[in-house]
Amino acid sequence: MGIISRSAAGRKPNESMRLIVTTFIGVVFGFFVGVSFPTLSLTKLNIPSSLLPTVDLSYIEDKKSGISTQTILNAWSSTRSNNSSSTQSNDTSKIWVTSNPRGAERLAPGIIAAESDFYPRRLWGKPSEDLTIKPKYLVTFTVGYSQKKNIDAAVKKFSENFTILLFHYDGQTTEWDEFEWSKRAIHVSARKQTKWWYAKRFLHPDIVAPYDYIFIWDEDLGVEHFNAEEYIKLVRKHGLEISQPGLEPNKGLTWQMTKRRGDREVHKVTEEKPGWCTDPHLPPCAGFVEIMAPVFSRDAWRCVWYMIQNDLVHGWGLDFALRKCVEPAHEKIGVVDRQWIVHQSVPSLGNQGEVKDGKAPWHGVRERCRKEWTMFQSRMANAENAYFKSLGSNSTTH
């Protein structure tokens, strides 16, 4: 009995020590596992999807990286969804969609937002509830603050169906907040720039895609006899893709085509001075509006935007080339007589030029306008000739 007692007493300290050592090693091992686990990539763990509902991830959060538990759960949910619908790899580096816009080939088509808009958004609430109304039309004015009364009168002719966009060539923007509508308008400012400079840079077809019609107007237009909603109705009725309001006939006119006729709603052809029109279906007798107050359909503007040159900022020559963007031009380009305007011919932008050789600023501006007209015509002719030459044809367009 004594031997048995001594043997039991001799083993007890050894077993106690072994238990302590084992416990210590377990604690150390558990510590290191706990420290290293958050740095592991969960997406690389091959865990059967049937076990996922039993895994509690509520404690997994990398506070340093800002990745939340919800983000991880969403990633798991997305992975499970992809696995259930397809056996293909979900490695995003393997995405390449040639039909995507250039530069976006690596994106899944479902995430691409190829178009945008000018709709203002709130900084709070649900995005789906931001817009109480989506305007269907866009009107732009290139303005200086000295024309504020005229622009105020013009803007009031456009209903809430229109987004108002002001391009400021004099740098004054906040001053317009004296008008209530200005606080809802979009303001873009770049000093001493023209309407077509702005249009090329801020009215890309993918930006204005939500709008059925785009008005690109000067600041010196009298609109006493104009109603925008009625104008749209007439444009739709007569199938006009490019149009303008008729001009008051008692003011100085450059072209007979834009002169208002009192006996009709719309006209698409006119008679000019002898020799001015080589074809009754060609400008300036048809397929022609001026660049002071043009209105474009969405589809027509997509073509016209690409035709605007980056360095030819006055737009001279565009009016004769607009016909190339619609077919047949003599039927889809016209002047709306029932809704008419007055061109006041205020040389405000012209005065933004510089005095040179003792001449007023507008002289230099007008000289450049004429040069740009010649340059644009030359570029258009050269481009078309090069195109037909590449086809092995000597034919040209009229």
Rank of each mutant, 00 (worst) to 15 (best):
K324H: 15
M257W: 07
P38R: 12
Q88L: 07
T396F: 09
I72E: 01
L282D: 15
L57W: 14
H330Q: 12
K359F: 11
Y306E: 10
E105T: 05
W197S: 03
G252W: 12
T98I: 13
A190H: 11
V355E: 09
Y211L: 05
E290F: 10
R323E: 14
Q193V: 12
F32P: 11
D91S: 04
N351T: 12
T270K: 04
I333H: 03
K268N: 01
Q352P: 01
I214R: 05
G144R: 02
E229H: 05
A104W: 11
R102I: 06
I95K: 00
D206N: 15
T396Q: 13
W276G: 11
S297Q: 12
P109F: 06
N46F: 03
I47T: 07
A199E: 05
T258C: 13
I3D: 13
W96C: 10
F141I: 11
P328I: 05
G222S: 07
E230V: 09
P135S: 04
V155R: 07
S189W: 01
N351L: 11
N161C: 06
G350P: 05
R121I: 06
S99G: 03
P13Y: 01
T396L: 14
E178G: 03
K44M: 08
A185M: 01
T54Q: 07
A286K: 02
V35I: 08
T43H: 10
P38Y: 06
F158T: 05
D220R: 03
N100P: 12
V336C: 00
R264E: 05
G144H: 01
T194D: 04
V223R: 09
K156N: 09
S36L: 14
G30P: 09
A228F: 02
T132D: 15
K136P: 10
K273W: 11
T98M: 14
N250V: 14
G66C: 03
Q339F: 00
N90C: 11
S7P: 03
I133Q: 15
S86Y: 00
K63A: 09
T396S: 11
Y306C: 07
W76C: 05
W305C: 00
R11V: 09
S159F: 06
L234M: 02
S393W: 10
G103P: 05
G34H: 12
L73H: 04
V55R: 08
F288C: 04
W276Y: 13
Q70M: 06
E241W: 02
W217T: 08
G350I: 06
F388C: 13
D91E: 02
H267N: 05
F179S: 03
G34Q: 06
M375A: 14
R80M: 10
G222N: 02
K200E: 03
S36V: 11
K136Q: 15
R260P: 06
D220K: 04
H363N: 09
K12T: 10
K192N: 15
W316Q: 09
T278Y: 11
G353F: 00
H343L: 13
P280C: 11
